[in-house]
Amino acid sequence: MIEFRDVHKHYGSLHVLNGIDLQVAEREVVVVIGPSGSGKSTLIRTINRLEPIESGTLVVNGTPVHDRKVDVNKLRRDVGMVFQSFNLFPHLTALQNVMLAPTKVKGIPRGTAREKGIALLTKVGIPEKADVHPVRLSGGQQQRVAIARALAMDPKVMLFDEPTSALDAEMIREVLDVMRDLAREGMTMIVVTHEVGFAREASNRVVFMDGGRIIEDSPTAQFFERPREERARQFLSRVIHH
């Protein structure tokens, strides 16, 4: 469903993606971990072309994402994205945030979009906040609305870019619960996170990045029990014991 082949990208002199080869199959949940500055966020942001790449190929749902002829707006409908800083639209209520893309991008009638929006807010556990603006929501609630907003387009893949890094401990749990449910339902997910607990329970595979390269790509259980690479071992001992 997603395939990177020898993808490269620089920020100035920094080789932020250095020959990435990665495949993600349908219904797979892949967690990307690694130290900060290792290229994880850049990697995930290339999938919906928020970041351009310089060479190599990246195919998503059969579409070569970075081909100039590709209609990027059409591609993005099928790729949901959740950001570290939530990025809810502050001038719209929670429900309006969720309804925006279905009505404006897909042209779904407001009534239908509304029903679906309420169903999605119920799914993420906050139907009572439908008519509230984002400023009046906690961080955890905002992130759950953001997940509902992305799901409203019925994406084939969901990308999570450090979805809990801006949250307090108690709110991390409520967001991870929603993500676990999604994983269980068979959503294809790529998750950049430092949450080792989530990775262990909900993912099929762990990809460890450092210095713009994928250092290790292993099934989850194997990665945590006997990581092959020394750098992955070091990183794990730090994040687990701190």
Partner: peptide, 9 residues
């Protein structure tokens, strides 16, 4: 970015 990633032009 959030708006564009939802498919808005």
């Amino acid at each position: 970015e959030a708006a564009r990633s939802l498919g808005l032009t």
